[in-house]
């Protein structure tokens, strides 16, 4: 099958993760992975992002497929249930809003900038080397640290399920995937 330009978007996903080690402000670019799928699903009623452009999915497919870093076993039944998928979506959102709240506190001057990346919503990793100050408000940096935490956490979860189950197991419970599918269902009157 002929490769198209969008089959190489995994390069961008990998670059994104690497850039976050050097300058945390690049984390803002990750918003593209939030807005593009939403825009496609709302405007066209398809999961075109998952189906074609998701660089993260491609990265898991490559590592688990060509590089053989996956057991290629079936994912447990409960993980594909609606309860788990929507439950994870809600949990992810709650954590996301908490991150936004922390950003707000820094913007308001009620909290100081914390130069840490929180992995799996619990482990606070020192990350000060990736912040060199900014002309902008410290809140801008706080959002970057928070957003990078979200992206790194989901990558780590995706890598774990890639190894344990099939390469793109993340796609089964990816909050963006669940949300865009829900939007498509509503938009196409299937709910």
């Amino acid at each position: 099958m002929k490769k198209r330009w969008y089959d190489y978007l995994w390069v961008l996903s990998l670059t994104y993760l690497i850039l976050g080690f050097f300058n945390i402000l690049f984390a803002w670019l990750g918003l593209l992975c939030f807005f593009i799928p939403l825009i496609i699903s709302v405007s066209q009623g398809t999961k075109g992002y998952c189906n074609r452009y998701c660089g993260r999915g491609q990265l898991f497919g490559l590592l688990g497929g060509r590089f053989g870093l996956s057991r290629k076993k079936d994912i447990p039944r409960f993980m594909k249930s609606k309860a788990f998928r929507y439950g994870f979506l809600i949990f992810f959102f709650l954590m996301f809003f908490q991150m936004l709240w922390n950003t707000y506190l820094v913007f308001e001057g009620a909290a100081s900038l914390k130069q840490v990346v929180t992995l799996l919503w619990s482990f606070r990793l020192p990350w000060h080397w990736a912040y060199h100050g900014t002309l902008l408000h410290p809140g801008v940096a706080q959002f970057a640290f928070g957003f990078y935490s979200v992206m790194l956490t989901s990558t780590v979860l995706g890598l774990i399920t890639m190894v344990l189950f099939k390469p793109r197991s993340w796609c089964v419970y990816c909050p963006m995937g669940t949300m865009t599918q829900l939007i498509c269902k509503v938009k196409n009157h299937k709910m």
Partner: peptide, 14 residues
């Protein structure tokens, strides 16, 4: 009922 519409199958279908 359990399809997540990720499109992995579409990519590999010959």
């Amino acid at each position: 009922n359990f399809c997540v519409a990720c499109g992995c199958c579409v990519k590999v279908c010959p």
